[in-house]
Computed example of a mutant assay.
Amino acid sequence: MNIRVLFLTLVLTTAVQASPTNGAAGWVSQAILQMPDTLRTRMLAAIARGDFAEAISFWELQTGRTAPQWLLALQSAFSTTNQKTGPCIQVARSVFEGFKQLGRKPSYVEFTTSGTHRGANLIGFDLPVGARSKTIQISENAVHYAVQIENRLYDAMTGPAGLPLAEYMARLQSPGTLSMKIVSQLP
């Protein structure tokens, strides 16, 4: 028995663990999760769980080709190395394109801050309780970009599960006045 057949056997006996009612799993429809076990179903479920390494393996196994650039870019966008000031535009582009390729209808969201207070141009993001540091600075120029699908926002800070709009807004911090708007394109 060759390694590929063994891997395929293991894959087909592994249970799909995505939940269609929360996080990124919301973009994998209930109908797809109820389909018979196939590599495609498992690949989509892995993406829904944020397990991009598994999704890429499933893609490569199913097609016999390397994963497409949009899938690799989506994986990279949620890397913790992007949780800092600077990469939000590229992250938003990658997340937007990845969700678009998955059949979703993403929108770009622009956050701006204004004011005369010292530091009014800064935007920070509060991390969950238990994180090493409490807040990460994500903008020094009064602008931050993310992607919205329905009532969830996605960027490097949220990971592939995203956050509900209200929770995201509660975590966004600035000494200035924050505002949010949907934009048709990025700079």
Rank of each mutant, 00 (worst) to 15 (best):
R42I: 04
T177A: 13
A15D: 13
S114Q: 15
A120R: 01
F111P: 03
R132H: 00
V183L: 04
A45W: 06
P106V: 01
T177I: 12
L39F: 07
R93F: 13
A156W: 09
L186D: 00
Y108A: 04
T113S: 14
A142S: 04
P187R: 03
R152E: 11
G64P: 01
M1I: 10
V28T: 11
P187M: 02
G124L: 00
L172H: 09
D51P: 00
G64L: 03
R171T: 00
A156H: 08
I89R: 05
I3G: 14
S133V: 10
G64V: 01
S133H: 06
A24G: 15
S57R: 12
A170N: 11
V183M: 04
V129A: 04
M157D: 02
V143R: 14
A18G: 13
F7I: 11
L33H: 01
L61Y: 14
V143T: 14
K181V: 08
N121I: 03
V5N: 15
P36M: 06
N82L: 05
Q62E: 15
Q83G: 09
T66F: 02
K181Y: 12
P36L: 08
A53E: 13
T81W: 13
V95S: 00
H117G: 07
I47M: 01
K100C: 12
N2E: 15
G50D: 02
L178W: 00
A131P: 02
A24P: 12
E150V: 04
Q137Y: 10
L71K: 00
Q185N: 10
A73C: 03
E54D: 11
V143P: 11
L178Q: 01
L102T: 01
S94H: 11
V147I: 04
K105D: 15
Q30F: 13
D155F: 05
T112Q: 10
G124M: 00
Q185S: 12
G115A: 06
I47L: 02
K100R: 14
I89H: 05
P160H: 06
G26W: 13
F78A: 05
Q75F: 08
N141M: 05
S133F: 04
L165F: 07
M157E: 02
R49W: 11
S107A: 11
